[in-house]
Design a protein around this nucleic acid. Structure first.
Length: 418
RNA sequence: GUGGAUGUAGCUCAGCUGGUUAGAGUACCAGAUUGUGGCUCUGGGGGUCGUGGGUUCAAAUCCCAUCAUCCACCCCA
C-alpha cells in the first residue's frame, strides 16, 4: 500500500502533464474571451453545503461523498462538484452587491466515492463556469456556446449537445403530478429503482437506462409538455439563439440531469467512442439554488466538463498535439576543466532565457551525446580541451548532424536568434 | 453497492496438463568507436511471480481470501 495510490486516483506524469496544460490553457483562453474570470475555492467545505446545494436525495450526497470529521469535530467533505462552493463564495463575499452578472470559471479536482471504470475516477477534474444574476435566454445560449467553442478549439467536433427544459418549480410540480398519474397503472412493471423514484423524484424515471422502463416511458408526459407559458417562451428563445449561433443540438425530452438544483435549461454533451461514460460535460440553469443556500433570489446557470473524459476523447480521435517540453541546448563537456567552463556557460544561457541543460553524472562524451539525442535537443554545445584552449565551443545542430566551431562569447547571441 | 475479466523485469508479454537456478522483446547502463548521438553487434544491472493463507515431496502454475487494475451495471464529469 505504501507505494500504491488510492483507488480511482491517478498520477499525472511529465509527458502527460503537457496535455493537461494544453487543455487548461485552452479553457483559460476561451473564458477570457467570453468575459469569465477565474475563481478558486477550497477543495473541502462544510458537509452541509453539499447536502443543501446538491440535494440530499442525489446519489452524490447519499453515497458518493468523501466526508470526515476534522480535529475540531466539524463535518468536512471533499467537494464532489464545483457549483455549491462557487455559490457559497458568491454569498460569503457578497458578490451580489457588486455589478451583475458575475461570470466566473474554475478548474480543479473533484472527489466522488464511486466504483472506477473507463472515464470515471474518484478524484477527477472539472472545468466549469457559473453566471449569477442574469436570467436572459442569451446567457443560456452563451454558456452552451462557450462549452461547444471550447471543445471545437480542441478539435472535438463530433460531439452531441442535448438540451431540454425542466421548467420552473411550478412546472415541475405539474410534471410530477402528471408523471405519477401516468406511471401509476404500470408501477409494478418498473424496475425496483424506478419504483422508489416514483415517490421521490418521478422525473428521473425518464432518465432510466433499463430497457423496460425506457419503453414504458415512451409516451410519458415530459417536462417540455408541461412548461408554463413563461418557461416555454424562455426555452424557445434559447433555441432561437442557438440556431442563430449555428450550434447544432438535439432536443432531448428525456434529458433530466442528476442534480436536484436544475431548473429551466438543462444540457449534456456526449462523446462517442470513449466507453460507457460518454458524457463529457453537462450543466443547466439553477434559479432556486442561491436562495436555497440562504442568499437573495438570484438566477444562476453553469456547466461542468470532465477533463479526463475530454482527454479520452482527444486520444480516441487523435487530436492530441505532440507537445514536448525540452531544452533547446545541451552542453557537453569532456574533462574537468571543460565542465567548469560549461557549467558557467549554462548559467549564462539560462540567464539569457535559453532553456539549457547539461550532464551531472560524469558521463563520457559519447554517453552525453547519446543523452542529448534522447532529450531531443536542437543543439549540442561541446567543449573539450582543444576548444578550451582556443576559447571556443563546438556548436552542433543535432537534426542536421552538422557542427561548427564558434567563440564562447558568441554562443548566447547565436542561440538567442533561433 | 452488484457482476465479469486480469495481475510474471520500468513497459509488452511467454512460461504446456504443478517438477532443477523464472525467460524473450523492448527500455535502462556500459563496451565495440581512447573527442561526437540516431543504425548494428556484444555484455551488464534489474523480478518478494500483486499480497496473505492453504493443498502438495514440490506452486508462477491448483484452491481460498484480500488488494489493485480493466470492463459493464448503477450513477455521473
Amino acid at each position: 500500500m505504501l507505494t500504491t495510490r488510492p483507488r480511482g486516483t491517478a498520477d499525472i506524469l511529465p509527458g502527460q502533464i503537457e496535455n493537461w496544460q494544453y487543455i487548461e490553457g485552452m479553457a483559460a483562453q476561451v473564458c477570457r474571451e467570453y468575459g469569465y474570470r477565474e475563481i478558486r475555492t477550497p477543495i473541502f467545505e462544510h458537509t452541509e453545503l453539499f447536502v443543501r446545494g446538491v440535494g440530499d436525495t442525489t446519489d452524490i450526497v447519499e453515497k458518493e461523498m468523501y466526508t470526515f470529521q476534522d480535529r475540531g469535530e466539524r463535518s468536512i467533505t471533499l467537494r464532489p462538484e464545483g457549483t455549491a462552493s462557487v455559490v457559497r463564495a458568491y454569498l460569503e463575499n457578497k458578490l451580489y452587491a457588486g455589478p451583475q452578472p458575475v461570470k466566473v470559471y474554475y478548474i480543479g479536482p473533484m472527489f466522488r466515492y464511486d466504483r472506477p471504470q473507463a472515464g470515471r475516477y474518484r478524484q477527477f477534474h472539472q472545468f466549469g463556469v457559473e453566471v449569477f444574476g442574469a436570467q436572459q435566454p442569451t446567457v443560456d445560449a452563451e454558456v452552451m456556446a462557450l462549452a461547444m467553442d471550447f471543445y471545437a478549439r480542441l478539435g472535438l467536433t463530433n460531439l452531441e449537445l442535448h438540451i431540454n427544459s425542466l421548467g420552473c418549480p411550478t412546472c415541475r410540480t405539474t410534471v410530477r403530478d402528471k408523471l405519477q398519474q401516468y406511471f401509476q397503472p404500470m408501477l409494478g412493471e418498473l424496475c425496483p429503482n424506478c419504483q422508489s423514484r416514483y415517490d421521490r423524484n418521478p422525473l428521473r424515471i425518464l432518465d432510466c437506462k433499463s430497457s423496460r422502463c425506457t419503453e414504458l416511458a415512451l409516451d410519458a408526459p415530459t417536462t417540455a409538455d408541461c412548461l408554463c407559458s413563461d418557461c416555454q417562451a424562455h426555452f424557445e428563445q434559447v433555441q432561437l439563439y442557438m440556431q442563430d449561433l449555428g450550434i447544432p443540438y438535439v432536443l432531448d425530452k428525456q434529458l433530466v440531469r442528476g442534480l436536484d438544483y436544475y431548473t429551466h435549461t438543462a444540457f449534456e454533451i456526449m462523446a462517442p467512442g470513449i466507453g460507457a461514460q460518454s458524457s463529457v460535460g453537462g450543466g443547466g440553469r439553477y434559479n432556486g439554488l442561491i436562495e436555497a443556500c440562504g442568499g437573495p433570489s438570484t438566477p444562476g446557470i453553469g456547466f461542468a466538463l470532465g477533463l479526463e473524459r475530454i482527454l479520452l476523447a482527444l486520444e480516441k480521435s487523435g487530436k492530441l498535439p505532440q507537445i514536448q517540453a525540452r531544452p533547446l541546448v545541451y552542453l557537453i563537456a569532456a574533462g574537468d576543466r571543460a565542465v567548469r567552463s560549461s557549467f558557467s556557460l549554462l548559467a549564462r544561457l539560462r540567464a539569457a532565457g535559453i532553456a539549457a541543460d547539461m550532464d551531472y553524472q560524469g558521463r563520457s562524451l559519447k554517453a552525453q551525446m547519446k543523452y542529448a539525442g534522447k532529450l531531443g535537443v536542437r543543439y549540442a554545445v561541446i567543449t573539450g580541451e582543444d576548444e578550451l584552449q582556443r576559447g571556443s565551443v563546438m556548436l552542433r545542430d543535432m537534426n542536421a548532424g552538422e557542427q561548427r566551431e564558434i567563440p564562447v562569447g558568441e554562443v548566447i547571441n547565436t542561440l538567442g536568434n533561433r
